[in-house]
Structures are given as structure tokens and as C-alpha cells.
């Protein structure tokens, strides 16, 4: 048993050394410690924990990001507002398992293909709120940029904390597939 533990320690040390060399060789592609601004560029407010203190209650722009944010507290008041469109950037099966009522499903990973193939009722001048799984997912940011830059939506926001935040705070949900997905 002692031999086995010693062998495991040798293999582990070798692997750790290789891993550290691998990180060192990547340079800027993989810094030793991630920059929070980049790591959470997808959906959270910089430096904030997923708690109330991080929310402003108003549309807030995160430094270095191109899509403005909207806090849960404000977004939940927009449910039922016909002028507001929620867009779920997650995969279809996640959308079917639960989503914000009335949301469209436009998975970020193939959003451009889907937008080219079919028509989505996306308003150009009204508010569009994108969300993905949680605080650190990046699909909502990616989709938001596509809607802003390619589609021409002028008021795109990313929901802070995404679906995780929404469900933690008890936001209304509905289940089932979207008429608008791939």
C-alpha cells in the first residue's frame, strides 16, 4: 500500500510539473490566474458575489464588456411587458427543462445559422434581455453581441446571474420547447 501511495505521488508530481509547464508555455492564452473581468465577462457584475449587494437595480454597464447588464430585480418586473423580449442562449434541452416565461430559444453556439435560416421576432428598438446558465457562462454575452452587431437590436441587455440567479430568486418559469429554435 505504501508503494502504491508513493507511486501515485510520483505520477502526480510528474503530472503537476507537466501541467505547470503547459500553462507557462501558453503565455497570454492561459494566464496563471484568470482576470475576473475576462473570466466573468459572460454574465456577472465585476467583483460582486451572487448576492443582493452586487445588484444596482438599474441597467449597468460592465467595464470592458460590450453588452450592458440588467439585474434580476429589474428584469423580473418586465415579465408580461409585451415590448420586452427575453432570449434564452442555452441549448434547446435546457430551455425545454425550464425557462423565463415567453422567452425565445436562440442557442448562442449556432445563433448565426439559426438567424440565417429562420425568422425570429426580435424587436430592433425595444428591450431584448439575453441570459444563459449562470454567473460565469458566456453564451449570453456572445448572443448579445450578435443581436447588437449583426441583427441590429439597439437595446440588448445580459441578465446578471442568468438562469441560476433567476431560479434562486424564485422568478417565474415555464417549461416546454420553443417554436423558435433549431
Amino acid at each position: 500500500m505504501v508503494d502504491t501511495l508513493r507511486d501515485m505521488a510520483i505520477l502526480g508530481a510528474l503530472a503537476c510539473a507537466l501541467g505547470l509547464v503547459s500553462i507557462a508555455s501558453r503565455g497570454d492564452e492561459l494566464p496563471w490566474f484568470p482576470d475576473p473581468a475576462e473570466a466573468f465577462a459572460g454574465s456577472c457584475e465585476l467583483g460582486s458575489a451572487p448576492g443582493d449587494e452586487g445588484e444596482t437595480g438599474a441597467l449597468a454597464e460592465v467595464a470592458g464588456s460590450q453588452v450592458e447588464r440588467i439585474a434580476y430585480a429589474e428584469a423580473v418586473t418586465l415579465i408580461g411587458d409585451a415590448s420586452v423580449t427575453f432570449v434564452d442562449a442555452r441549448a434547446a434541452e435546457h430551455f425545454a427543462a425550464g425557462h423565463i416565461p415567453g422567452a425565445l430559444n436562440l442557442p448562442a453556439m449556432n445563433a448565426e445559422e439559426l438567424l440565417a435560416m429562420q425568422s425570429f421576432p426580435l424587436p430592433l428598438e425595444e428591450l431584448v434581455v439575453c441570459y444563459c446558465e449562470g454567473w460565469s457562462c458566456e453564451q449570453s454575452e456572445a448572443l448579445g453581441k450578435i443581436l447588437q452587431d449583426r441583427v441590429g437590436c439597439q437595446k440588448v441587455r445580459v441578465l446578471e446571474g442568468g438562469w441560476l440567479r433567476w431560479t434562486e430568486r424564485g422568478g417565474p418559469i415555464e417549461r416546454g420547447r420553443s417554436d423558435h429554435h433549431g
Binding site: 502526480g12 503530472a15 501541467g19 505547470l20 494566464p31 490566474f33 484568470p34 473570466a39 466573468f40 460565469s136
Partner: peptide, 27 residues
């Protein structure tokens, strides 16, 4: 990014784990 999505490990450790874990698997 996958590691961060689990929201278990501290942010500072995610890149270190991303470098070391695959090497542990390969070794």
C-alpha cells in the same frame, strides 16, 4: 471555463486546474 461553470473552485485556481488535471489524466 468549464471548471468555473461548476462554481465550486475559487476563481484563481481555475487555470491551474485546467493545466494540471488533463496532465494527471494523461500521465
Amino acid at each position: 471555463e468549464d471548471i468555473r461553470n461548476y462554481e465550486v473552485f475559487p476563481l484563481w485556481s481555475s487555470n491551474l486546474l485546467a493545466g494540471v488535471v488533463p496532465m494527471l489524466e494523461l500521465t
